[in-house]
């Protein structure tokens, strides 16, 4: 019974996420060179930040 309930909750959640992904699949903002540049810079910035975070936890684990 509990297993059935949990399975249903997860199934519903996945369906909701898929629905949201479908609904917003096409970004409304016009991809001008400036927007493209801003988004790429943001992506690189976040990758760098996450890398630093992982490095920190790696060094913490090493201690």
């Amino acid at each position: 019974m509990a297993g059935f309930f949990i399975r249903n909750v997860f199934k519903d959640a996945i369906e909701s996420v898929q629905e949201i992904n479908h609904k917003y699949a096409k970004p409304q903002i016009k991809m001008t060179p400036f927007v493209r540049f801003a988004l790429i810079t943001l992506r690189l910035y976040l990758i760098l930040l996450v890398g630093i975070l992982f490095f920190k936890f790696y060094t913490l684990l090493g201690k």
Partner: peptide, 8 residues
């Protein structure tokens, strides 16, 4: 979501 899509 609307402006930049699902990833962002």
């Amino acid at each position: 979501f609307q402006g930049f899509g699902p990833f962002w």
